[in-house]
Write a protein that binds this DNA or RNA. Sequence first.
DNA 1: TCTGGGGTCCTACAGCCA
DNA 2: TCTGTGGCTGTAGGACCC
Length: 344
Amino acid sequence: MRRILHIDMDAFFAAVEQKRCPELIGRPVVIGGSGDPTKRGVVATASYEARKFGIHSALPLKTAYSLCPRAVFLPVDYEAYARESQKVKIILRSVTLAMEDVGIDEAFLDISEIGKPSGEISQLIKKAIKDETGLTCSIGIAPNKLLAKIASDMDKPDGLTVIMPEDILSILKPLPVRRLWGIGPKTEKSLKDMGIETVGELASLQMEALVDSFGPSYGNYLYHASRGIDDSPLITDWEPKSISRETTFQKDMASWQFIAKTLADLTKDVVTDMKDSSFKARTVTVKVRFSDFETVTRATTIPHATDREDEIRKAAFASLKRVELKKRVRLIGMRASHLERTDA
DNA sequence: TCTGGGGTCCTACAGCCA
DNA sequence: TCTGTGGCTGTAGGACCC
């Protein structure tokens, strides 16, 4: 039986801001976009005080402001959070190298090979993180990643939850399907239309029914996930498959010149990123989102991988020219993929 | 009404080729 | 020579994650 830990930092961005600015402690704090709630942007993290007003991640800043005008709105300072994240990851790697990074504020550890009780290891991690960063985390312990992630979410903040094999089904059964990793708003709605709202109800469906409704890959995943079955390994080393930049305009744009200038700027940023991380790319995809949220992509593949800005910009503009700009444009983005290492 | 940015993976389909 | 099949690659869109 594997022993997997999921470590999840509590309201991470807000906690970092409250640490460096202690007068924010105890106040509703909302981090997102440029920090100006009258501008376009969404909430990245809300402090627990702000969550009491119904503010949560992905909520438009304007909506968050209407829910709690007296909240403190701050811009995302990604570099500051990355520095704290680094400290946490160093602590986790000192426990075991069997660590999977899941974004800036989460990680999985496989502690199966460590000859100490899971609870003891978890308490040591929590104390080390608190001593080193002043921040708290919640930890879930379970036989696989799927369940460890559910466990870490069961007692927040500063919690520690163990799911024992004999308790898996009774814990899963009453949970709303949305709590399973991989079930988002669309699948939740599809399941609701089928009369399925809890993980227990999902587990009552036959494999054939799930495959019919959701396809072989996802249907199979849902069948097993609803039973708490997950054999997926930890991904300890990872290579990017694409590098991209996109930007949403403050106002929807009709000027081709302005859109083209923005695309050239995004290309420059992507190429800088590629060179910094020693990648060349073969495929350049341009993404355009119109004022009504319709989103189209156009891709151009060049015969050889390159990190030359002029070649990549040419491919980006070849892609852009294939988009009919019939409506005002809300967002423009570009992505480089089919990456190859330059030092390989 | 409003809906960011940086990613991954899956599906469907079309064209090419053996 | 014609037709069918299956693999591979590229393209486009969609769902999901943090």
